[in-house]
Amino acid sequence: MSALPPYASPLQRTWFYTFRILCGLIFFFLIFPIMVIVPLSFNAQDFFTFTPEMLAFDPAGYSLKHYDDFFTNPDWQQALRNSVMIAPAATILATVLGTLAAIGLSQSHVPYKSAIMAVLISPMIVPLIISAAGMYFFYSRIGLQGTYWGVVLAHAALGTPFVIITVTATLVGFDRSLVRAAANLGADPVTTFFKVQMPLIIPGVVSGALFAFITSFDEVVVVLFLGSASQQTLPWQMFTGLREQISPTILAVASLMVAISIVLLTVLELLRRRSERLRGLSPG
């Protein structure tokens, strides 16, 4: 399928190109909705479609007013601040706890390993609406509902499975004799961890942290239930915006978030390459 052999029959030739076109259409379906909001966010009108001016590339058809609204509107700014306060705290908590646990789980003799793993992975499997419902009931009992820390703890719990999975994946390729060699050369466990193990697993830790960050930064269901008005995050603001009075500012926010995802994707890809190189899985 990678290339058409010279002896291909006309039927094969037709199918080859049909298949390529079909795949192209599916890729278009995947990427078009995300890409179309970027030009629409520069619309000078409060419309959600291309105006004749925009199609004619008339500069008057474009403006930055929706971005301007995002950066000056106090609601959006408060939402941005909340997101920036909640996501990093949840990320740090999830990454530290998750990395330690992943190292513990990678040892050769762990009792009840599969049961522990099932519990630790469960926040990723249980549908968000159920987690949100349970947390809402339980956190109201213990007075965490509607508080900053309630949201942070919930988001950290949702993010830990990703840290465990990514760090465990890097630890699979980790050569345990390096730790023994370090111990043999007189390093204590803490030194060994920071000087030998950490530099090798850091790509996994960072990509786990990125997953945890994006989990919290994008999360809306749990925060809708657990948060009060003063914990309103960006996704929450977008959700209410989409449900009640849809304003084009949402498109500006969405475009900014697409930019963030592109940055994240690039960082992850670089990390993956570095990790493969360090572990000698791929040349260069």
């Binding site: 706890l97 646990a101 513990g104 040892q107 630790l120 469960s122 926040p123 703890l153 719990a157």
Partner: peptide
Amino acid sequence: SLLLIAPLLIFVLITFVAPIFD
């Protein structure tokens, strides 16, 4: 290994599993 796992296990049990049982 259990000591390394314990903090997260306790954390998940309290912040996630307990709510589900609730």
